[in-house]
Design a protein around this nucleic acid. Structure first.
Length: 320
DNA sequence: ACCTGTCAAGTCTGG
DNA sequence: CCAGACTTGACAGGT
């Protein structure tokens, strides 16, 4: 059983390397001409892509193949004020070279549209904005020429006081999405509304791979034991070219149980590994922690003390 | 160089 | 019905 590790969007080790620089509407509006406004936006976007390339070098140097790119690569990309800005033309060269590098190094790239991307909202304008946001993410991944194994991780959405109706609305709206978007979407259980069991059933019905978030499962679970669902959750990835993925994080504290702690406690991962072991199936683990890549490195250091773990390289272990 | 209130976007809860 | 919580990195204005 091989487990590969990755982290989310930014490094706390590399200096001045944010891939998420942006500009506020107020400051953008201070620039008089549209040409100059677009030039400013382009400059920020290209800087974000350069920093993403630095992150890729860093990941390569540390054997990290699992990585989530930020959703904020292109400032204000889906805001109406940039409607006439052809951002894709301005950055496609950099997207292509990022994608080339990702493929050369066998990176597994994903993105996670933000929490206001909701396919099941009863408000039509919210759903429409969400589709536009998914299209934006699609253009990024397509621009990198990554195949459909590069996923868009989203949640089911809100409960709207009626989960059944809201699930039905998700199904209805999901089916209206383009094939290119559907191929990339994977669904994750959340910490408040849709449990792992809920999401598994939905994923099975729509044939969507499911990302299990262990921390969310602790928060929201119908008292289910995840062991009972693990084989089925992993099976939702059977048609895919890449292994199943899980998210792991530690609660910040008792009072802020749903928030992410600085690091991930290795015991949580070891517990999960024990449950997954009988499935004897490779999987990828996304570390979600305030300390980002440093949390991953810290976890690896702890895992080196475990006798039944063999390190393949700095970002991948084998368990027996 | 550092600090703090604010920022495009949604939903839910509590008053 | 509305204000505040949630969550979070970065901006931007001020010291």
């Amino acid at each position: 059983m091989r487990i590969s590790f990755g982290y989310v969007a930014m490094s706390v080790v590399l200096k001045d390397c944010s891939p998420s620089r942006t500009i506020t509407l107020q400051n953008l509006s201070k620039i008089a001409s549209e040409k100059d406004r677009f030039a400013r936006l382009t400059s920020i976007a290209r800087e974000n892509l350069d920093n993403t390339q630095r992150l890729f070098f860093h990941n390569r140097a540390n054997d990290i193949k699992i990585f989530r790119i930020t959703s904020k690569l292109i400032p204000l990309a889906t805001h109406p004020v940039t409607e006439n800005w052809d951002w894709f033309a301005e950055v496609k060269d950099k997207l292509k070279s990022l994608g080339d590098y990702a493929r050369e190094n066998d990176f597994r790239i994903s993105a996670h549209p933000d929490h206001f991307t909701l396919l099941n909202s009863p408000r039509e304008e919210v759903t429409e904005a969400s589709v536009r946001d998914l299209e934006y993410h699609l253009r990024i991944l397509d621009g990198m020429r990554l195949d459909s194994s590069a996923k868009l991780v989203i949640h089911v959405g809100g409960g709207y006081k009626n989960k059944e109706a809201s699930l039905a609305r998700f199904i209805q709206n999901y089916k209206l999405l383009s094939r290119d978007i559907k191929q990339r979407i994977v669904l994750e259980n959340d910490d408040k509304i849709y449990t792992a069991r809920d999401v598994l059933e939905l994923c099975q019905e729509l044939k969507i791979p499911m990302v299990l978030d262990i921390h969310h499962h602790w928060c929201n679970n119908y008292n289910d034991d995840i062991s009972d669902y693990l084989a089925d959750i992993f099976s939702t990835w059977d048609g895919e070219t890449r292994p199943p993925k899980i998210h792991i994080s530690s609660p910040k504290d008792e009072k802020h149980f749903r928030s992410h702690a600085d690091n991930v406690e290795s015991s949580f991962l070891l517990d999960f590994m024990a449950k997954a072991k009988q499935l004897n199936r490779d999987f990828d683990v996304m570390i979600e922690a305030k300390n980002k890549d440093q949390a991953l490195f810290n976890l690896m250091t702890e895992l080196r003390q475990i006798p039944y773990i063999r390190f393949i390289d700095g970002g991948c272990i084998e368990v027996w």
